Computed example of a mutant assay.
Amino acid sequence: MPLDVETPPVPDLEDSVDPNEYDDAEVVGDTDYRRGQLEGLLRDGAWADAFERWSAETDVTADEWQIVLELDLLARFDFFWDDFADRVGYHAPGIPEDWKERELHPDVDSWKTVSSINAGLTEFGQTVCEVLKDEYITWESEYEAPEDLPDF
């Protein structure tokens, strides 16, 4: 069943975090992460397009979505350009494993809820990356492979 909610605001992408500090991302080489350009594309419609696509297919419930909003998880999304891989990379926020001890939210009361929210946000992040790359990004990767690579 689709998630029938309003499109949330676009997160602010900040250059303060090196993507290699995330457990779920690895960027090779020095690169311009192009966060400013990506944020502009998100504001120009990529975020809304991705949200519409994702919300039509997600398993996240309206109650779980309310938890996401109340915990302000969407503000912690990060998107960055990975020139070496010619792709948009991302870091999806989530509910931490120690959610019980931290008592983050009164409605976060089971691993099922935590898993559903975390999986849903990961899927949304991937959808945003795909929409950006397939429909909005017009630049080419500046990475050039060495000429002495073997032919396979």
Rank of each mutant, 00 (worst) to 15 (best):
T138D: 14
S115T: 13
W111C: 01
F51G: 01
L41A: 13
S116I: 07
L149F: 05
L3K: 09
G89L: 03
V10P: 03
D4W: 10
E103G: 13
D148V: 00
Q37Y: 07
I137L: 15
W99I: 10
D44Y: 00
E26R: 05
S115R: 10
D107W: 07
T138C: 09
G89P: 00
T61Q: 05
Q126N: 09
T7F: 04
L3N: 08
E101A: 14
Y33E: 06
E140V: 10
K133R: 12
P146C: 03
D134S: 13
E142P: 05
V60T: 05
T122Q: 08
K133C: 09
P2H: 04
V5M: 09
L74D: 00
E64Y: 04
V28F: 15
P150D: 07
G120A: 04
Q66Y: 05
W47V: 08
D107P: 01
D134I: 01
V27G: 04
Y143T: 05
D151H: 04
L38I: 15
D107M: 12
W139G: 08
Y33H: 09
D12V: 15
V68S: 02
V27T: 08
T122R: 11
I137G: 06
T127D: 09
T31M: 05
D151L: 09
I137V: 15
A85D: 14
W47E: 04
E26V: 12
E70I: 01
H91C: 10
A56L: 12
L121S: 02
A85W: 08
W139T: 12
K100M: 14
Y136S: 02
V27C: 11
A56C: 07
V28E: 12
L73T: 08
L71D: 07
W47I: 06
G120Y: 05
P96V: 13
F80E: 01
A75K: 12
D23Y: 07
N118F: 02
E101Q: 13
A50S: 11
D72F: 11
D15P: 03
D59R: 08
D32E: 12
T122W: 08
D78I: 11
W139C: 08
D82W: 04
F51R: 03
D82V: 06
P146W: 01
T31K: 06
L121T: 01
S55K: 07
D98M: 11
S110V: 01
I95F: 02
E130T: 07
F152L: 14
Y90P: 00
P93K: 10
A75G: 06
S116E: 06
L71M: 14
E6G: 14
N118P: 01
S55Y: 10
T31A: 15
T122C: 10
D12S: 10
V114A: 11
H91D: 13
L13C: 07
L104W: 00
E57K: 07
I137W: 08
L71N: 01
D32K: 02
E52H: 13
P96K: 09
D109Q: 10
E57I: 01
F124H: 01
G125D: 02
F77V: 00
V5Q: 08
G40C: 03
D82F: 06
A56D: 13
A25D: 02
G120R: 02
